[in-house]
Nucleic acid binder design. Structure first.
Lengths: 101, 101
DNA sequence: TTATATTAGCCAAATATTGTCAAGTCAAAA
DNA sequence: TTTTGACTTGACAATATTTGGCTAATATAA
């Protein structure tokens, strides 16, 4: 159950790349990427997208980690967070059935 | 599976109150409350709190609807939204076990 | 019609997020 | 020990988003 930062750091290191190398490739300031990998900054949607593309495999894993981290952040200090999460799940499932109509 | 706006409107109408009456009670501009009840604006945490307090019963229901709506909003047009939601749930459950230590 | 309730549009103020720079730490190489 | 290179940190300006609330429009009912 990894967070987006961990995943990105592991992916980068597994390829032996430097922050500045990935940064150059994606026009992303290396210090910003550093923050992202330490979960100090949340990547924007575009950043998450281009990072997941860049690392090729595990695209969905990256996006899911990013999205789920945002969700956790949203309810992190709410007593009813978990309950709300379950309701939200049902709402999404319901919306899905609606869309197919 | 109601959204926050529906719930608030139903609660208000069930008590026969006007937007301006509830607004006056909570120092909330009636036009803002109108937007909230139509899901045009998301109430702030404080507004959600004071509204749930105001309506007394169903406090948790109001808060859960509010939080879950925010969560749904966060992933609404993401293909992986539901998958991310499930991961987020696990992350929260994990964080809970950590806190009790 | 007139009065009252609600909704819609708009925009300024407040708040939050983002990108970037300069300075800092740390470890390994020279 | 000094230097080098990779990364981290803190601060701040630029941007973007959210919020509150005004005025005007619309609806509903007497």
């Amino acid at each position: 159950m990894k967070n987006i930062g961990q995943i990105l750091r592991e992916l980068r290191e597994s390829k032996g790349l430097l922050l500045r190398e990935v940064g150059a490739e994606l026009s992303l300031d290396p210090t910003l990427l550093s923050k992202i990998e330490r979960n100090d900054r949340m990547p924007t949607k575009e950043q998450a997208k281009s990072l997941s593309d860049f690392y090729g495999d595990k695209k969905n894993e990256v996006i899911i980690a990013w999205l789920s981290d945002k969700l956790v952040y949203e309810v992190q200090d709410e007593d009813l967070g978990l309950a709300a999460m379950k309701v939200a799940e049902q709402k999404i499932e319901y919306l899905k059935t609606q869309k197919t109509k």
